[in-house]
């Protein structure tokens, strides 16, 4: 399989995706302004997928755990915030929700992770499955299962640009633009945190080897609480943006599942990978739904990401930006 795992395979895959993206223009299926709208819409959706994927990458990078509960954390955080806002102003509710997410991280570390130190990755993964189900149920039990409107002042009305240039103009959702700016800011902050702070370096050391990190005095338990807390805060940001768009409700955590193919594409350990993976998936699924949907019967948006992830697993399992893993046997 070495043939498939060469770096240039990545460029071939990206090239194929690029050709696919521009194909509708040459196949005569699309007029340029409409195609551009789909591209912009896809990129904006991709940014939102990246936001959830960031939480996944963060925990994987720092603890080697693939956190299946990230979607449930997004829902739990958003539900907590929106219900608390019924009793207090937004700023206070935000602080209280952050505290709740830190508390959740602490409880997870005490009850789930600590007893599982030095266990296989698959054991920790299974534990996060349990956390996901527990958080799902707990969130709905405490906060209810209705659709709650989350208004944090995001603009709902789209803007039509270049009306004089193209008939009908190009529609841009301002809510998506603001979400993209927020996501970019978050990525910048996380990159700084990982590269420039001692805690960030400690997190990376723990990810490499639990025992080795402990032997040089890195407190594993504290590190896990920190990383799950940061991941909880990323989940809160994702929850705010998704919740503002879709309303806060159970399906938020299903949308968050899209983060899985995103990290497969981008690489489990790469923050830029989460961003690029999200953009490719967002763009690909929207273009294929609009231009292939009429021929294939629609519904492509739902499975495109997973099929693409399968292709990447076959040809480049470490993802676009992931570190190649070589085991000495």
């Amino acid at each position: 399989m070495d043939f498939f795992q060469q770096k240039w395979m990545t460029w071939i895959l990206i090239g194929i995706l690029g050709i696919g993206a521009f194909a509708p223009l040459y196949a005569g299926d699309a007029r340029f302004p409409q195609w551009l709208e789909v591209v912009l819409g896809g990129l904006m959706s991709g940014v939102l997928y990246s936001l959830v994927a960031l939480g996944l990458v963060l925990i994987f990078k720092a603890s080697g755990v693939f956190n299946f509960a990230q979607g449930a954390m997004v829902l739990f955080a958003a539900l907590s915030l929106v219900r608390l806002m019924e009793f207090m102003p937004l700023a206070v509710a935000l602080v209280v929700t952050m505290a709740i997410m830190v508390a959740v991280a602490w409880v997870i570390e005490r009850l789930v992770l600590r007893p599982l130190v030095n266990q296989e990755g698959i054991v920790l993964f299974m534990a996060t499955l349990g956390i996901a189900y527990f958080l799902d149920g707990l969130g709905q039990t405490i906060w209810g299962s209705d659709i709650y409107t989350l208004d944090v002042g995001m603009p709902k009305v789209p803007k039509i640009l270049l009306e004089n240039v193209f008939e009908g103009g190009i529609l841009v959702g301002m809510e998506d633009v603001i979400a993209a700016i927020l996501a970019a800011t978050l990525v910048g902050l996380l990159a700084l945190f990982f590269q420039k702070t001692s805690t960030g370096r400690a997190l990376r050391a723990v990810a490499d080897d639990h025992q080795a990190a402990q032997s040089i005095g890195i407190p594993l338990n504290r590190i896990w609480v920190i990383v799950w807390s940061v991941s909880g805060l990323v989940a809160l940001v994702a929850g705010i943006i998704w919740g503002s768009k879709l309303g806060v409700q159970f399906s938020l955590q299903l949308v968050a599942l899209k983060a899985l193919p995103v990290v497969i594409l981008g690489g489990f350990t790469s923050i830029p990978g989460a961003i690029v993976g999200g953009l490719i998936i967002g763009l690909g699924e929207k273009l294929s739904e609009v231009y292939l949907g009429p021929y294939l019967g629609g519904g492509i948006e739902n499975w495109f990401a997973y099929v693409l992830a399968l292709v990447f697993l076959l040809f480049r399992p470490e993802g676009l930006f992931g570190e190649r893993h070589i085991d000495r046997v």
Binding site: S45, L252, L254, K286, G299, E301, N302
Partner: peptide, 12 residues
């Protein structure tokens, strides 16, 4: 497709 939260392409 279920549950119906992804409709951007549909509405485009």
């Amino acid at each position: 497709t279920h549950p119906g939260v992804e409709q951007k392409a549909t509405w485009l």
